[in-house]
Simulated assay, not measured.
Amino acid sequence: MSQPTVIAHRGYAGVAPENTVAAAEFAAAREETEMLEIDVQPAACGTPVVFHDDRLDGDRDGRPITDGEGLVWETDLETLADCEVLESGASVPTLERFLAALPDSIGVNVELKNPGTADRRPGEALPAADRAERRERWSPFVERVVEVCEGFGGEILFSSFCEGAIAAARDVAAGYPAAALCYTDLEAGLQVARRYDCEAIHPPRNAIAGTALAGEAYDALPAADPAVDLLETAREAGWAVNVWTVDTWVQFDQLRRAGVDGIVVEYPGLGGEP
């Protein structure tokens, strides 16, 4: 049985302050870590920063995500550098600073979260009439992201729930692999992967047929049997399948036995033998 790639979700967000340099350093120190998954969006000046939520004043399990407020893309870099993430002492880093904390031996899955707008249309396979406009909306930010990533010596994989982001990445960063993130509409994700000749698809953990996880409710996804056999489809298309996001060794083992290529995990140690 092959061992899936261990992908640290936001730098093992279950035990480290997500998307921070502290999380990058923690994940890099773990021998099992082969890749990190992070989220990028622009600060007010367009500089890519590593942060998941649209707003600085959200929360995680009742704890403030930061001590700041407002939309990330309307906030200047100096203010972001002063925002404390999850009361951890760590702040919101630029993408450049985050990557500088990692060795070249660790890959990074850079999720293109948004280009500086709440109007993103995630999870859609866009009609032909909308694709060019959506690509152009993303392109300036993707160019900034690629410029930073070119200074990193490790593997980079771009992913997004948004077709416009994948389209822009294919135009701007043709030399980098890309992955379509699937959500509630699995077929839409597959359409995007086909349309842009992606190297991978990233489905949620309950979308892999034949596992006990299949059909369970997860995140905003309802309890329903997968409408598509993603593994069979991916093998026919030549895509890697990297599944998000698992919390336990049992979940990891189910997906490993199913034959997925990578697993995004909240905690270190989930891929070890019992």
Rank of each mutant, 00 (worst) to 15 (best):
R97C: 03
R235L: 05
A207D: 11
L36N: 04
G62Y: 12
D59Y: 09
E199T: 14
L36T: 03
V72L: 14
E187Y: 05
D57W: 08
W138Q: 10
P127T: 02
E18A: 15
T233Y: 04
C83A: 15
V192W: 00
R144I: 07
E187P: 03
A125Q: 03
E232F: 08
C149A: 11
R30M: 06
D261F: 08
V250L: 12
Y183K: 00
R120K: 14
P93V: 00
E232M: 02
Y12Q: 01
D54V: 11
E155S: 13
D185G: 02
I166S: 04
T20V: 09
E136F: 04
D197I: 13
Q3N: 07
D82I: 02
V21H: 00
D197Y: 05
E266F: 15
F26H: 12
R120V: 15
R121S: 13
P226S: 03
G58S: 15
D197G: 11
A167H: 05
V243M: 12
N242W: 10
H202T: 07
D219P: 02
E266N: 15
P42I: 11
L231F: 07
T5A: 05
P222R: 12
A125K: 01
I166A: 03
P17V: 09
G14A: 09
M35Y: 11
V260Q: 07
D119Q: 06
A220Y: 11
E236R: 15
C149T: 15
Q3K: 12
V49D: 04
R134E: 15
V72H: 12
A129W: 03
A13R: 15
T117A: 06
T33H: 05
F161A: 06
F98N: 06
L77G: 11
V50E: 02
L77A: 08
D253V: 10
D59T: 14
G238T: 08
G151F: 09
V146L: 12
L157K: 10
A214C: 10
V92N: 01
I65N: 00
E31R: 11
Y196E: 06
E31C: 01
Y267A: 06
L231D: 04
E31P: 01
E143Y: 02
P115K: 01
A22Y: 00
P203V: 05
Y196S: 09
F26A: 12
A173K: 04
A29V: 04
G210P: 05
C198M: 07
T33V: 06
M35S: 08
F98G: 11
A100V: 04
A22F: 00
R144C: 09
D57T: 06
D229Q: 05
P140R: 00
G89Y: 01
R205D: 05
P115A: 13
A27N: 02
V50M: 07
I263A: 13
A167P: 05
R55C: 14
G153R: 07
V21M: 02
A27H: 01
A168L: 02
F51C: 10
R257F: 11
G215Q: 14
P4A: 10
P204L: 00
A223W: 10
L230F: 06
